[in-house]
Design a binder for these strands. Structure first.
Length: 269
DNA sequence: ATGTTGACCTGTAAGC
DNA sequence: TGCTTACAGGTCAACA
């Protein structure tokens, strides 16, 4: 379940095993992912990992000559396990490490990606990304100003990576509910005051989710496949027909831009 | 330019 | 039980 919080939880979970580790071997079992895995990935063999960072929903594994860039897509997972353990179905790439561990990329739907960005190079995928929602650069002014010409539904607007990164379908739904904003309202028909609240709720929801992911973090290294621990905190997502936690009217659902959307017609305007 | 839709791929659950 | 259909956490190219 890779929204921004899950990607960050993944990063926190595997980073301790990767920091300063040396890559001995790169195994590519399935190069056909979202984009073809670039052959340059092999140049990481024999090199030392510097650090693992995140930008939007991308994970960047830094080397002295460039970065490996992972994206988990809809179904991607990463795990660090003992080198001798067998590969599983949908394991597409392995990085064998010096420390008898390997980093494995698994992705049934193959919407994920593995790219290489040489030092000084700028991949198009990372070029036009908007601000990180949990950094200073994500301001109320930025949201308000960039919405002024947009008639698209506000939900589509906040899921646009050029506006702000990392807000996926679940958290777009949840943040709008908490801000009392109807997901279909045109982005340019929302006041600066309401964008202030929306910004605040996006930050709250993502931060809470990362914190909740901390539980998963602990058993991340051993058994893989952690359950949906966020679900207990969801107010609207997946709750069509169930009572709103505020007004107790049944929640509605509707497709917006091909994505299932949940909201309360009473509380969200 | 902006807004909307289709495509990529597999697994799972629901419906018949 | 088996077959068919709808849907799933994302993103981008190609349309109107």
């Amino acid at each position: 379940m890779p929204e921004l919080p899950e990607v960050e939880v993944t990063r926190l979970g595997i980073a301790p095993f990767l920091d300063q580790a040396k890559v001995e071997k790169v195994c590519i079992y399935q190069p056909k992912l979202r984009w073809m895995v670039s052959p340059q990935v092999q140049t990481c063999a024999g090199r030392q990992i510097i650090k693992l960072t995140r930008r939007a929903k991308y994970l960047l594994l830094h080397f002295d000559h460039g970065q490996l860039i992972f994206h988990l897509g809809m179904s991607g997972k990463m795990r660090v396990v003992d080198t001798h353990l067998p590969i599983l179905k949908h394991d597409h790439v392995e990085l064998h490490l010096h420390n008898r561990k390997k980093l494995v990329f698994n992705d049934p739907r193959r919407f994920g990606a593995l790219l290489f960005q040489a030092q000084g190079e700028h991949l198009s995928q990372l070029q036009h990304l908007g601000p990180e929602p949990l950094e200073q650069e994500f301001t109320e002014d930025h949201l308000f100003v960039s919405s002024r010409q947009k008639t698209t539904p506000v939900k589509t607007f906040i899921m646009d990576n050029r506006i702000v990164v990392g807000v996926g379908n679940i958290y777009a739904n949840e943040a709008l509910f908490r801000a009392n904003i109807h997901p279909l309202r045109a982005a340019n028909r929302i006041s600066q005051t309401r964008y202030r609240e929306l910004r605040k709720q996006i930050i709250t929801v993502l931060t809470n989710a990362i914190t909740a992911g901390g539980t998963t973090l602990q058993d991340f290294a051993r058994a893989d496949g952690s359950p949906g621990y966020f679900s207990q905190q969801l107010n609207v997502y997946g709750r069509n027909g169930l009572p709103c936690i505020n007004c107790h009217r049944p929640l509605k659902s509707k497709r917006i831009a091909q994505r299932n959307t949940f909201y309360c017609t009473q509380c969200q305007r």
